[in-house]
Write a protein that binds this DNA or RNA. Sequence first.
RNA 1: CGGGGCGUGGCUCAGCCUGGCUAGAGCGCCUGGUUCGGGACCAGGAGGUCGGAGGUUCGAAUCCUCUCGCCCCGACCA
Length: 570
Amino acid sequence: MYWSRLFIPTLRENPAEAEVVSHQLLLRAGYIRQLAAGIYNYLFLAQRSLLKIQRIVREEMDAMGAQEMYLPALNPAEVWQESGRWSVMGDNMFRLKDRFGRDLCLGMTHEEVMTGIARGELRSYKQLPQIWYQIQTKFRDEPRPKSGLLRVRQFIMKDSYSFDLTPEGLDAAYQKHHDAYCRIFDRCGLDYIAVEAHSGAMGGSQSHEFMVVSDAGEDFVAIGRKSGYRANLEKAVSRAKPPAAPDPEGDLHPEEFHTPGQKTIEDLVKFTGLPATSQMKSLVMVADGKPVLALLRGDHQLSETKFAGALGASDVRPAHPAEIVDWMGADAGSLGPVGISDKLRLIADSALQGRRNMICGANRNDYHLKNVTPGEDFQPEYLDLRQVEDGDGDPLDPEATLEVRKTVEIGHIFKLGYKYSESMGLRVLDEHGQEITPIMGSYGIGVERILTCAIELFHDKDGMALPVSIAPFTLVITPVNYADEQQKAAAHQLFDAAKAAGLDALLDDRDERPGVKFKDADLVGIPYRITVGKKLAQGIVEVVERRSRASRDIAIDDAVAWVSAAASGK
RNA sequence: CGGGGCGUGGCUCAGCCUGGCUAGAGCGCCUGGUUCGGGACCAGGAGGUCGGAGGUUCGAAUCCUCUCGCCCCGACCA
C-alpha cells in the first residue's frame, strides 16, 4: 500500500487525556480515536493489527478442534434470568427495552446463550465433547473506564465453552486451552505468565489467569522467580517476613498502659519504640451479618478475599464505628482480642501463631496492652488471612522470596463445573439411557489487551516496537526523496519484490522530508524499514530493525530476502 | 457512588484571579517558492457558537447558578 493514500493520522504531541503509554501511543500513532468514555474507534492501523491477532487466535482454536460460531450481542432478558445472572450482573450490564417494552441486554459474555444452544440440541453422550467459540464484541458498563484500551465498555473477546461428560473430560479441555493460550500468546510475541487465580463469582474449581507484567495493570500477582510460584494476590500465600525485633522472653501477663491519642500502628511504633511486627492489628469485620475480630501482625494487610473464603462468607464488610463501640467497648484505634471472645469470633492470621508478649489495644480508649500472647491470653482460630507482600518468603522455596507485580489480564480459563448446565437444565443421555448433566468450562481472551500489552512491553521514546506477528505492516520502504527518479524507481522495485515475497509492505511515497517519514515509521512501530537514499548509486540500501535500531547496508537485490528471513525468524 | 482535575481552531496550550478593542501562540492544514538522511525555511491564507443553558452587568472566555462531557485516585471489576 502507498502511505500517501492511507489514513494514518499521527500526532506530534501527546493528547492530554492519555496517561498510560499504550494509550498515548495508540492515539499518537493514529491507531484509535475515542468516541466516548471507554468506547473507541479502531482506525485502519488498529484494525489491521487486531485482525492479525484474531487470525492467530482463530488458527490456534481451530487447531485444537474448537468450532467457531457467531452469536447475538443483543440478548433477551429471559436467558440471563434463567441462570440468575440478570440480577447478579447489576449495573455492569447494559440493559435496554425494545418497542414493546421487553427487556434486553448487551452480552458481557455468552455462557447462557451457549448453554442454551447446547440444551436445545445436544441429546446424546455420543455428541460430546464439544468446544465452541466466538470472537465477538462484548459490552460491559464499567463504573470507570480507563487507560485507553485496557478497561473499556465495548471490546472484542474470544471466548470458548467446553461441554464434557466427565470431570476428566473437562480436565482435558482445560489443558487444551491452557496449551493453546500459551501458543497464542507466544505467537503474539508477549512475555506472560500463567497464574492460579481466585475463581470469584464464576464459581468452579480451577482457574488460571494469563497475565502480562506491566505498571499499567490493575491486578497484583505474586511471583516466585526460582520456584515458578505464580498466584493472583487474592489467592497467593507466603511465609511472612520474620519479626523485626525478638519477642520479650518470659511468661508475662497482659499489662495495660496509657496511650493518649495513639490510634494507628504507626503511632504505636513511635510511641512504644517497638516495630510494627511487634504490634497486633485488630480489625472488626462483619461476615454474613456476624461480627468477627480479625487479628494480623501490625505490618500486614487483611485480604478480604481470603477472609471471606476462610469463613465461607459471601458478604463481608468492615464494621461501622457504632457497631465497634457496641461490641468492643472502645473505638477503632484501641481494640484488641483480650476478653471479648464471648462477643465476637476471634480469628488470627497464621503469622501470629507462636508469637509472645505483643502489643494490642485494650478495648478502652487511649489504652493498650503489652505482653499479650496469642493462645494464652486469648484463643483464636489460626487461618491464612494476610495479603502477600513483595519480599515475603516463597511458599515453595525456603530460601527464596516472592515479588508482587502489577499485571494486565489477557486471558482467563475456568472450570465452570455444573453451574450453567444445571441451572439451565442441560442434559444428555448416557450409554445406559440415563440423563446426565454435562460439565462445562469457559475460556476468554481479550483481543485488544494483547495489542495494548504488546505496546506496553515493547516501546521506546519514539513509539511502538511491535512484534512482527501483530504489527499492522511488516516492512516500510522509505525513499529519502521520492521526487528523485532513481530513488522512486528503486523503491518501487523493492516494493514489488516485497509483495512477491508475501511481505506485508508499505511504501512511504509521501512528499515529506525524510525526518518526518522516519519519525512516523518509528511511531507506528513497523518492525522493518528499508531506506532508499544516497547509497543507491552504489546499489546499496539500508535495512533498519525497529526493535533493536540495528541498521545495515545491503545490496538492493538482497534487501527483501534479508527482511523476509529476519521477519519469519521472529 | 465518594474525592480531585480539566473543557478556548485538528493537536498542545496562554488569556480567566483583577470583566472592556477585530480572542492569541506553537504545531498541523491550504497556496506559491526554496529545500530534501531524523518532525525544514520564506511569503500568503483558511479555520474558533471560548462544552451547553440560564443569570449578573452598559459590556462575559473571564463573575454566579445549574448542567453535560472527559481524565485521574478510591470503591467496583464473569
